[in-house]
Amino acid sequence: MSTTTQELAVKMIDVDNPLAATVKREPAYRPARRGRKSPLRVIFMYVFLTALVLVLLIPFGWMLSSSLKRNTEVFAVPIQWIPTSFQWNNYVDIWTTIPLLTYLKNSATLTLSITFLQLLTGSFAAYGFSKVKFKGRDVLFVSYIATIAIPWQAYMIPQYIMMQKLHLTNTLMALILLQAFSAFGVFLMRQFYLSIPDELVEAARIDGLNEYRIWARIMLPLSKPALASLALLTFVATWNDYMGPFIYLTSNDLWTVQIGLQSFVGQYANDAALLMTGSVISIIPIFIIFLLGQRYFIAGIATSGLKG
């Protein structure tokens, strides 16, 4: 029995060897073969998806178009979809109007650190919550999750006072410490690990692998789709966070993109066009991450599945 499981585990990991990666990946499950063969169905699918996406992207389109408008045109009534004259210089001016490069660098520092720590500690803790049975585990888990339920506005002042006492305010470290250990990552990874059969872990134990090795050698490689989603969602959440950096970062040279964009919003007047330009620019890194991560959403453990 133990040998079969080991083979199984090896086979599952094997999918991720460099050779296998070059093989064109297929999704976990393809719908009925009959359907795939009909070109009419495929065309219908494309038309439907395109229409859906176009409708969904209307607000984004407005944002894109506004980023190329003159400031006064942004709020024109009735709504103006195409700028009267394209202000391409918005995309040039913004780099000098605010120190956008510095802000991008700070955002990247925060986002990379937090995402990395979140993935590491989150998947580690998730193993404890899903594959190691011990007393009080579920109570601890529920209380973990329940704290997510407290709105940040409620504890932000006590939290700030604590960070001030630790002399961490006005450092990027403060935000990393606050956001890298969120219960969200643990929760996501735990749910994923639950779907991996316990038999696999049991077999590995019988084969003499200790728990840490099981995590590193079996669980981590198997959980790529989940790690990819967690990385993406953490990346987006951190990158787009405004209130956290706003409260904790005071010096202008530590500001992130989202705080920087706020400088286009004044007490009485806004630079709405540049605000939209900045918003579009700030999406580009996430867009790249998303495209890079794409293949992990397609190719998961199920490509090899439990076949054997």
């Binding site: 580690f124 803790a125 601890l140 969120s182």
Partner: peptide, 17 residues
Amino acid sequence: IGWSFILPNFAGFALFT
């Protein structure tokens, strides 16, 4: 063992949240 897995995340979480 369970706690050793949970602790790295939990320590940060407990302290700061």
